[in-house]
């Protein structure tokens, strides 16, 4: 099995990445910034699920990663349409 130290280092990097993305999500001056941060958070969580799959050896966790990737894409498309139909603005 894989070295637990490496798994923990990977978790640490992913979690600090999640933290940075979350700061951008709360701070982000405009709505598109927040959407980008949300999308990055989804893909970081998908990566975390992948690392967890390797750590536990349960292959079924991969399905969660698939669903997460799908949902993130749909969210991005939805927000994009929403923003664009809203027209120009200056917030």
């Amino acid at each position: 099995m894989i070295n637990p130290l490496i798994v923990n280092i990977a978790y640490l990097m992913l979690l600090s990445g999640l933290l940075f993305a979350f700061i951008r999500l709360t701070k982000g001056p405009t709505l598109p910034d927040r959407v980008v941060a949300l999308e990055l958070m989804a893909s970081i969580v998908a990566g975390t699920v992948g690392v967890h799959t390797i750590e536990t050896g349960v292959a079924s966790f991969l399905d969660i990663a698939i669903v997460l990737a799908l949902m993130a894409f749909l969210t991005a498309i939805g927000f994009g349409r929403f923003l664009e139909l809203g027209g120009p603005r200056d917030d």
């Binding site: 798994v7 280092i9 978790y11 990097m13 992913l14 990445g17 999640l18 992948g50 390797i54």
Partner: peptide, 17 residues
Amino acid sequence: CILTGAALMFLAALGIF
């Protein structure tokens, strides 16, 4: 693979920040 992937994601988050 795991370490490079995690490092890339960390850099992405740092970049977004």
